[in-house]
Amino acid sequence: MIVETDPVSSTGGPPLAHGTAVGGPDALLRVEDVSVSLGGRLILDRVSFSVGAGEFCGLIGSNGAGKTTLLRAILGLIAPAAGRIVVAGGARSRRNPQIGYVPQKIALEPDMPLRARDLVGLGLDGHRFGISGPSAKRRLAVDEMLDAVGATPFAEARVGSLSGGEQQRVMIAQALISRPKLLLLDEPLANLDIRSAAEVVELLARIAGEQRIAILLSAHDMNPLLPVMDHVVYLADGRAASGTTDQVVRTDTLSRLYGHSVEVIHVQGRVLVVAGAEHQAHHAGDDDPSPWKA
């Protein structure tokens, strides 16, 4: 376990925004005091956390909390205004082969002439110019990857014709085939039915454990991740609290993060984050975190 301190819960004082750099020297991903501004608006405010090998980290926050921006910064698609992002010991840069990426819901038409196996192949050499010749080695690598994510039964089908859960498996295979050390997934569970979401989470947890890959997965609902999450980064208004689920998903920590009173309720093994009672009384109808969007 990498995380020893949590800036929000440990001090009890106001320096919530100023996150303490966490993570040992062996962390695969270190985000240190990162701020990002887009169009003059501060999207991320001094965010710090780290993810180690084999660790499953959930990046939780409602829409607009800055999850996608943070992932894009880690990928090198956005330059942080301040702070540092270190991936596998080296400075973050574009085309970092250490990072595998599953973007937010790809919208492929059902008639797009691209089979699941072709998309996985693009994960291997899609950035190269020219056409790939037939290669037994390439085919074997693709077959192995399809098998590893359980996508062999629909390997020959068009990606656009697959169900949401099947598409996510193919996208995960696409991201893993280049053997990255860090896997970033942007809302992979959005639009999935409960059963498919649970299957995808289970698959990812298995991969993280077996291949010692660090996984950072963004989601607006943390509940499907609770059984497997080693570590949570909770984003609200561009600020982050990180630590174990028990450290972060607490009434006092999240209230400080949101800057107003929220309450964490445990119902039958699930977690709900709702507006606090006294706050609700005074600011009914405010843009409070709703239980389903937390």
Partner: peptide, 16 residues
Amino acid sequence: RPLLLSSVSYDLAAAR
């Protein structure tokens, strides 16, 4: 190949 990849996802291609 890059054209196909960026047709699937602009962000994915850029990240690669």
